[in-house]
Computed example of a mutant assay.
Amino acid sequence: MKTLSRLCLLALTVAALGSAACSPDRTPKHAPISPATPTTTPGGDPSPTTSGGDPLFPKNVFIGSKVDQPGFNVYTDHTWVGFEAELSAYLGRKLNFTPQYHDVPSAQREKVLQEEVVELVIATYSITPERAKLVDFVGPYLKTRQGLLVKKGDHRIRTVNDTAGKQICTVKGSTSAPEEGKSNPTAGQGNYLHKDAHFVHLSDYQACVDDVRAGNSHAVWTDIPILYGYTEAGGVPMEVVSGIEVGKIQLYGIGIAKEKDLDMSLEQNRHQPERCRALEGALKTFLQNEWYERFRVRFENLTKANPDFEATYKPTEDEVSLNTTCG
């Protein structure tokens, strides 16, 4: 099944091959298209290798991603655009692999790693103790709290108190999703919304945005950068409610399978801890050299609303060292 999944993904990169017989939950929504990567890392450093001199990563690295997530990763004009797409491309340049994207729902991220459908998951994937029991993480590369997205000009929700009696849309499998009954016991206090807010859970954030635009829900609740991404997408204009920043701090990490879950008959799987540490080192250089400008460009509305965005959303290298789990 693992081999079939990979063959299906590769088949989709070549139009002449037509439709591949892939199972529905493993078929990417878009063909994986990426630019060729150099044989050396920027600055002329040699590509990372194993102790035996073999390449540390395969030529094509399949990455579970949100391929329709404005601000993070969107496929447009035969190009992947967004903060996570640029992070993936940077890792590819540093570690000598070509990213190949595979659309993955939030609730399936552990599964696609454990079943070796993908090597990495870079998909607004929050690091949590529960998830770290199932997969390893490198990161974080972004940290955030949660807010609310409404139709532009809709002022019915201006404070946490205003969410009482309102229908709030969020996504299945998201760690930022508030559970009914665990919201604020008292209006306007604590980390969540009003105790009388009503929640509906849909499959993805675009579905939630469409639900708000259709008038079925009053707002979308999730991490603030995700919300701002939709303010820069097409369609009915949306806006993030100013002054509402609540919920748990989410730390977005790069998911990687635990060594125990890999097929160790494959040579490339025998160096998983080395791969994990190589990703950690590359991520730290991304934070030093690329993070600020990439984030500023991809989340223009957010950075205008919060000029101190680097202090709010950028992790430190110490946070990466603390939260990375390699084997």
Rank of each mutant, 00 (worst) to 15 (best):
M1S: 13
L7M: 13
C8H: 01
L12Q: 14
S19F: 02
A20K: 11
P24D: 02
H30L: 08
I33H: 15
P35S: 09
P35T: 06
A36T: 12
T37P: 09
P38R: 04
T39Q: 10
P42E: 02
P46Q: 00
P46G: 02
T49D: 00
S51V: 08
S51Y: 00
G52H: 03
G52E: 10
D54G: 03
L56E: 13
K59Y: 15
V61D: 08
F62G: 03
D68M: 11
G71H: 00
F72V: 00
N73K: 01
N73T: 11
V74E: 13
Y75K: 10
Y75N: 09
T76P: 00
T76N: 10
T79D: 07
T79Y: 00
V81D: 14
L87I: 09
L95G: 00
N96Q: 08
F97A: 09
Y101F: 14
D103L: 10
S106M: 12
A107P: 03
Q108T: 03
E110W: 01
V112S: 08
E116R: 02
E119K: 03
E119G: 14
L120K: 05
V121Q: 01
P129C: 05
A132C: 04
A132W: 08
V138S: 01
G139D: 01
L142K: 04
L142N: 08
R145L: 09
Q146K: 12
Q146A: 15
G147C: 04
L148E: 10
L149Y: 11
D154T: 08
D154E: 06
R156P: 05
N161D: 14
T163N: 05
V171L: 05
G173V: 05
G173R: 09
S176E: 08
A177N: 10
E180N: 09
K182M: 08
A187G: 15
Q189K: 12
G190Q: 11
G190W: 00
H194M: 06
K195M: 11
H198R: 13
L202T: 07
L202A: 10
Y205H: 13
Q206T: 10
D210E: 14
V212K: 04
V212S: 06
H218V: 07
A219V: 11
D223L: 07
P225I: 00
L227K: 05
Y228T: 10
Y230T: 06
E232K: 07
P237M: 06
M238N: 13
E239P: 07
V240I: 02
V241S: 04
I244V: 15
I244N: 07
V246I: 15
V246Y: 07
L251D: 03
E267I: 11
Q268G: 03
P273I: 12
A278P: 02
L283K: 02
F286Y: 15
F286I: 03
N289A: 08
W291L: 10
F295I: 02
F299G: 01
E300L: 13
N301M: 09
D308R: 04
F309M: 05
E310C: 03
A311Q: 10
T316Q: 01
D318H: 12
V320S: 06
S321V: 12
T324F: 01
T324D: 06
T324V: 09
T324S: 15
